[in-house]
Design a protein around this nucleic acid. Structure first.
Length: 707
DNA sequence: GCACTTTATGTTTTT
DNA sequence: CATAAAGTGC
């Protein structure tokens, strides 16, 4: 770690004369450069708190924070701001969102909440359809298009329908005092553009910006960045065009190119020396990525020797794959006296983890699962979050509905329908409607009673929430609403115990966090919504890591297994033939109700099954290098593969299955084209089942040890 | 009208 | 195998 920096790294750290772009190849010491540059800035007279390092994931932010803490001790009130784009957005909106008519305790909706709202607006019951609408709106938002602008560029009736939905959705969210993930970037941008004094304040507050993974920024994020740095343009952007893997989320490499145009004085520094992988691994990675067009030419090199050969293992099916990989890890660890934590199994989709989990558990090997289902997608956590959101923001109708119906308290769809209609007419929140006398003519006393009881309880508790310690308060609420009984009553033993455990963890975590930072429950709920997992202690456990390639970005492991290297999986299918379905009229079934929330949802199941929106297909105006959409998809998949293989330090093993179970049928698979692109032999000559040899080797080793 | 039990359904990647 | 919509007692 105390290795001296190479000249390029040194230059990247010291360059302060203007905007700076660091093209950092995989394993080239990027995080180290950023950390050192922050120190250098402080030494050069920058106030620590005027420096912001913006990352893309929570994990990267946490990592950076740790490194910084190791490097220098700073007082708590004078530390650089290290956070994700979205966390920065939350901060900006909490402090200045009033300029946009947003109250400080606005709610943050996760994508499930948002999808539910969209389903309601469009009056569809089809989840897939709601998701398609959602992803189209999201892409529009990420491209910086307002509902009007989206409508203007809509090219068929489907898109016009979605544009109308987009408009209604925006109005509905505003009514709820809620924002979605995309708004966390879009609204701050709008705010800075429309309010000059706010923009100047932020520009003066953040005197130097460091941005990690610029290649993953979308149009809105790039625009926000430009607003934040202002005319002074004091920033360093760090990225690698070969590791851009978030195109599906609106990220565009175009930003990397535009950086040079928007800032003609941009200093470009390339980090090309790799400190991570042995020669064979690097050679495979380089061979792979030469198949992609390049923006910034760079060639990674290393002083390490060739090391182990990269192995390719064909497997009979996914079970054999899991068994073989796990056995190999066991044997390899034994031979090398390595730690479990030196091993990682990387895959394209979360569902692939299951087989490996089962096998690891069977062999009693410790493992940690990163990526996967986020904490805040779990039903029990979403329940708690709904209560917390409602306490902070009583305009939040979705939170109101969830809280009042979990646990059951005699309020059902009929009552909610009436309440929602009433609230819609009067343009007030459902919560506010509860207390209106006008409601009495619409509901029976029997229906009214639980509503009022609930409303009063929320009022009382919200009052307490202003000062009470968050952990205790939350525990008290859970007790008062009988949440534990609710879980035990509606689920079987082990499931209830499981959920109860995560609830307990959650409460404990909240308690700890609130004590440390002196924050209330409401304060915490905002930063919380952005976390995918409770940050934690499983990083230092000695355990095999199971992770998606996406979630493994930025990490490194001694020995890496990239599994499922098959056509259709890695590169992922979904783009294959794509017949240009030129559906004539698609009845863009728009909303019956305007912005009025009506929870009962009339459910006009579209019997004909008409309007199908081509989901995820980006209306990208073709690439800089004129590649087709399908080619671009493959290029991103190739970069994903590149990210996967460059995680490995000393050994790399790639596996693929001849057949794989999908749903209930077995499908025959072909090896990934990427294997040949890496100049590797896809079909191993070995006749013997690789699982058997690994098993035998392990048994032999164990035998030897006993003697 | 509300709450609970059965039955269809479906899988990229994350803030 | 998990969640979410429709169906059935109370």
């Amino acid at each position: 770690m105390s290795m001296p920096m190479n000249p390029a790294q040194m230059e990247a750290v010291r360059y302060l004369d203007g905007p700076c772009l660091v093209i950092a190849g995989a394993g080239s010491g990027k995080t180290r450069v950023i950390t050192r540059k922050i120190l250098h800035l402080i030494e050069s007279g920058f106030s620590a708190r005027a420096i912001a390092a913006i990352t893309f994931t929570n994990k990267a932010a946490a990592e950076m924070d740790v490194r910084l803490k190791q490097a220098v001790k700073l007082p708590a009130n004078d530390r650089p701001l290290v956070c994700t784009f979205h966390a920065l957005g939350v901060r900006m909106l909490r402090e200045d969102g009033a300029a946009l008519g947003l109250k400080p305790s606005f709610s943050i909706l996760d994508s499930d909440d948002a999808a539910a709202i969209l389903a309601q607006i469009t009056g569809t019951t089809d989840r897939k359809m709601a998701r398609a609408v959602q992803s189209m709106i999201s892409l529009w938002k990420n491209a910086g298009l307002s509902p009007d602008e989206a409508a203007a560029q809509a090219r068929n009736s489907d898109e016009h329908g979605v544009a109308r939905t987009y408009r209604d959705y925006t109005a509905t969210l505003r009514g709820y005092q809620a924002v979605d993930f995309d708004d966390l970037i879009g609204l701050p941008l709008q705010m800075l553009r429309e309010h000059r004094e706010v923009a100047e304040r932020w520009q003066n507050r953040l005197r130097y910006l460091l941005v990690d993974e610029v290649q993953d920024t979308n149009v809105t994020q790039y625009a926000l960045l430009r607003m934040l740095v202002g005319p002074r343009a004091a920033f360093t952007a760090v990225g690698d065009d070969d590791q851009s893997i978030y195109g599906w989320r609106g990220a565009t490499l175009e930003n990397l190119r535009r950086l040079g145009e928007d800032y003609p004085k941009l200093k470009v520094i390339k980090l090309e020396q790799n400190y991570r992988s042995s020669g064979n691994i690097l050679a495979a990675a380089n061979a792979l990525i030469t198949h992609n067009p390049k923006l910034h030419d760079k060639r990674l090199w290393s002083e390490f020797g060739p090391g182990d050969e990269v192995q390719v293992l064909p497997m009979d099916d996914d079970e054999a794959e899991a068994e073989s990989v796990v056995m190999r890890i066991a044997a390899h660890r034994f031979e090398r006296r390595a730690k479990y934590a030196d091993y990682a199994i990387l895959y394209r989709g979360n569902h692939q983890a299951r087989a490996f989990e089962l096998m690891l558990r069977k062999e009693r090997m410790p493992y940690v699962l990163s990526g996967g289902q986020s904490w805040f997608e779990r039903a029990e956590i979403r329940d708690l979050m709904a209560w917390i959101r409602l306490l902070g923001n009583d305009d939040d109708d979705p939170a109101f509905i969830r809280a009042i119906t979990t646990p059951r308290r005699g309020v059902g769809p009929q009552t909610l329908q009436a309440l929602g209609e009433y609230a819609g007419e009067r343009k007030i929140s459902m919560f506010a409607a509860v207390f209106e006398t006008g409601l009495e003519s619409r509901l029976s006393a029997r229906q009214l009673e639980p509503l009022r009881t609930f409303g009063e309880y929320i009022n009382r508790t919200a009052w307490n929430a202003r000062k009470a310690p968050a952990g205790e308060l939350l525990a008290q609420i859970l007790k008062e609403i009988g949440y534990e009984d609710h879980l035990r009553g509606s689920l079987d033993e082990k499931q209830a115990a499981n959920r109860l455990q995560s609830v307990t963890d959650f409460v404990a975590w909240i308690g700890k966090r609130s004590e440390e930072d002196g924050k209330t429950l409401i304060d915490l709920s905002q930063t919380l919504a952005l976390l995918s997992r409770l940050d934690g202690n499983d990083g230092d456990q000695d355990a095999v890591r199971l992770s998606t390639v996406h979630a493994a970005k930025g990490l490194e492991f001694g020995h890496v297994f990239v599994v499922g290297c098959e056509e259709g999986l890695m590169p992922h299918a979904g783009d294959a033939p794509v017949e240009e379905a030129e559906d004539g009229e698609g009845a863009g079934s728009s909303a019956p109700s305007g912005a009025a929330p009506s929870p009962g949802r009339p459910a006009t199941s579209s019997a004909g099954g008409p309007a199908t929106i081509s989901a995820g297909r980006q209306a990208k105006p073709a690439a800089a290098h004129g590649a087709s959409a399908a080619e671009q998809r493959i290029e991103e998949e190739r970069r994903l593969m590149y990210v996967a293989v460059t995680r490995a330090q000393r050994s790399l093993t790639l596996t693929w299955c001849r057949q794989r179970k999908r749903a209930k049928t077995v499908a025959t698979r072909l090896p990934s084209r990427f294997l040949t692109e890496m100049k590797l032999q896809a079909d191993a000559p070995a006749k013997v089942s690789s699982t058997e040899t690994a098993k035998a080797r392990l048994a032999a080793l164990k035998g030897m040890l006993k003697k």
